[in-house]
């Protein structure tokens, strides 16, 4: 494709059609903090720290990209992460088997996802309400399982692999982020499943009329979301070397924000995995920068909220621009 300098609209179209607004925002905000905070922000240590803090959000954002592009929403991921962390820590305490702990943790996510999927497709309850209810139910179980007590994890191998470890100077959490990002990217872009997800979210009737089993796709997407959230819970447990029922509180909103900022449309039918991960990093950088700049927690919340609104507003200006454009071209045809 030729790049034409003389046509600004062309440039704008290219700019936005690749949903690169999130990358531009990342560069600008990174540069801003780098200039104002100097070496406390731009140090290898701090950057790696940001990747540790954002790994769970990134992994859940990968799955949430599938959920939102299928036209659904999942509010139960934060609770699922907490329940999975509790399950893992309890199994480790009882058996000290990493394999069993992993299986138990992931099973939590699969069960929650399956329940969500079946309620959405078979009982026809909207995803928002299904997962809103599930959010409370699962968090309740996470509190119940040990009567709200935290469970320490004393298995150093588990803590190394799923939390605190570094390999070749790079945190294991970053490796996990890359692995799950790659799996998500592959699933969304390279295999039929991804296209079926996008078609289901873009126009469910047309997808069904094309032979796509849209119910099965929706169930699969919710199970994926549950499983990824459960894995995020395992990473929380590893990083904190404990299971706590408070893990992941409010994560669902950070994750949804990251996915939307990353260029996935809330209306369904489009999805950007790398954008979602970048969105997560963007949020991580903002959190980190605001703390280093010495803002109080209340100030951080206000600024973070404003930045999210701004980023989404810029993103949706693009979709406005696109729909105007298409209306005009339709007429011209």
């Amino acid at each position: 494709m030729q790049f034409k300098v003389n046509s600004f609209t062309d440039f704008k179209k290219r700019l936005f059609s690749h949903n690169i607004i999130v990358y531009i925002a990342l560069v600008i905000i990174f540069a801003f903090f780098a200039l104002t905070l100097g070496s406390t922000f731009v140090s290898v240590n701090n950057i790696l720290n940001i990747t540790r803090q954002t790994a769970m959000i990134s992994i859940m954002a990968v799955a949430m990209t599938f959920v939102i592009s299928a036209g659904l929403i999942d509010l139960s991921i934060g609770s699922t992460a907490a329940m999975s962390a509790m399950m893992v820590s309890v199994i480790l305490r009882e058996t000290n088997s990493i394999a069993l702990a992993l299986a138990g943790g992931i099973a939590v996510g699969v069960v929650v996802g399956l329940a969500n999927g079946l309620l959405i497709t078979k009982a026809k309850i909207p995803a928002f309400l299904t997962t809103l209810g599930m959010m409370g139910i699962v968090r309740g179980f996470a509190m119940w399982i040990t009567n709200t007590a935290a469970v320490p994890i004393l298995n150093p191998n588990f803590n190394f692999i799923f939390g605190t470890g570094n390999i070749a100077g790079i945190p294991v959490l970053l490796y996990w982020t890359v692995v799950f990002g790659a799996v998500g990217y592959f699933m969304l872009n390279k295999i039929p499943f991804g296209k079926h997800v996008l078609a289901t979210g873009g126009n469910e009737t047309a997808a069904r009329f094309s032979g796509v089993n849209t119910d099965r796709i929706k169930i699969a997407v919710m199970v994926l979301s549950g499983a990824f959230a459960a894995f995020a819970g395992i990473l929380y447990a590893g990083r904190m070397q404990a299971g706590r029922f408070t893990f992941g509180e409010g994560d669902e909103l950070s994750v949804i924000a990251a996915v939307i900022i990353g260029g996935t449309s809330m209306a369904g039918g489009t999805g950007a995995i790398i954008g979602a991960i970048t969105g997560s990093f963007l949020m991580g950088i903002i959190n980190n920068g605001l703390i280093l700049a010495g803002f109080t927690v209340s100030q951080q919340m206000i600024i973070r909220g404003a930045i999210i609104i701004l980023a989404v507003a810029i993103g949706s200006r693009y979709s406005h621009f696109k729909s105007n454009k298409s209306a005009e071209s339709r007429k011209a045809n």
Binding site: I191, G202, T205, A206, F209, V212, T270
Partner: peptide, 29 residues
Amino acid sequence: RTQGLVLTHTVKHNAILPVLNRIKSWVMI
């Protein structure tokens, strides 16, 4: 518009939707 096509998708993605599972090499499209 409501039953035949996903209007926000490309010509290509609409056209191959019913045959996606038949044009795999290993698991990839």
